[in-house]
Nucleic acid binder design. Structure first.
Length: 270
DNA sequence: AAAGACACCTGTCCGC
DNA sequence: TGCGGACAGGTGTCTT
């Protein structure tokens, strides 16, 4: 479900409800997520929340003594509900707050994760090797160009690699490459610096626009208030195989690259 | 070191 | 209607 814009939308939505709150309880109904929810998470009880941030697609809830690290996987979502609201199927964990609200994780496929880390958060093994944030200055054409030299991988798989740049998932990879006019199957190492200039720009554009629209709702994404995202109507190629290209009217094609469906226009993208 | 396959899990949709 | 199979917004891990 969530790519960077959806995680950012969630982060912004939950932050005001969490800042300054004290965690009054942690209830785990289903500990079997991608990794088992650690027993030490219960030590978050009694701690006060000082910051709610995002790194890549990881949400970070910083408390006095440690950080709760949440990944939404493919199907996860977070909502704030009143503490008397009964949990439904796949509502795996509640973090109860002094306000009387619960931060509730819903995740049917259970590819998500909830972890606890007491050291400097950047040292967490899942975070320490991540590439730059696409909306920050460390991410640019020079970075993409240098990282890609010698790589034979398809450029789409390359930009979806979190060690190169975080947050570019399957939807926005196809969209960015379409806007940049680059074929997704092109070898990353054979793309010019000039074309990476364009690509770094379209990646930033697409992600920023999607955040402004509250993310993309394809099936069931909703923000922490239960509202859908509206970027789906801006998608130019994703999910549009067989339909007319918005630029040239050729039929949009689909091809599996790196085991992920990839959408493109073979006339506009070279 | 890099690239590809596979794994995790549930829900939905499509064709027969 | 039922059933099997493919597929879905992610990413760590294992194998080449």
């Amino acid at each position: 479900m969530p790519e960077l814009p959806e995680v950012e939308t969630t982060c912004r939505g939950i932050r005001p409800h969490l800042l300054g709150q004290t965690i009054s309880a942690v209830e785990v109904r289903q500990p079997k997520l991608r990794w088992p929810i650690p027993a030490e998470l219960s030590t978050a009880t009694g701690q006060t929340i000082h910051a709610v941030t995002r790194r890549g697609k990881y949400l970070l809830i910083k408390t006095d003594t440690g950080t709760i690290l949440i990944h939404l996987g493919m199907s996860g979502s977070l909502r704030l509900v009143d503490n008397h609201q009964q949990p439904e199927k796949h509502d795996h964990i509640d973090i109860a707050l002094s306000s009387g609200k619960l931060l509730r994780l819903h995740d049917p496929r259970r590819f998500g994760a909830v972890l606890w880390w007491t050291e400097k958060i950047e040292t967490h093994p899942l975070l320490s090797k991540l590439g730059p944030e696409p909306l920050e200055t460390a991410f640019d054409d020079d970075h993409l160009w240098r990282q890609s030299r010698g790589r034979k991988q398809a450029v789409k798989a390359f930009i979806m690699n979190g060690h190169i740049v975080v947050g570019v998932g399957n939807i926005y990879a196809s969209e960015s490459l379409f806007r940049a006019g680059i074929l997704p199957q092109r070898q990353a190492g054979r793309i010019s610096r000039q074309r990476y200039q364009r690509l770094s720009q379209t990646i930033r554009e697409v992600l920023a626009e999607a955040i402004a629209q509250g993310g993309t709702t394809l099936q069931d994404f909703s923000n922490s208030d239960g509202q859908p995202g509206y970027f789906a109507q801006e998608l130019l190629v994703y999910g549009r195989e067989g339909q007319d290209c918005v630029a040239c009217s050729a039929k949009i094609k689909i091809k599996v690259i790196g085991q992920r469906a990839s959408f493109y226009c073979s006339k506009c993208q070279t």
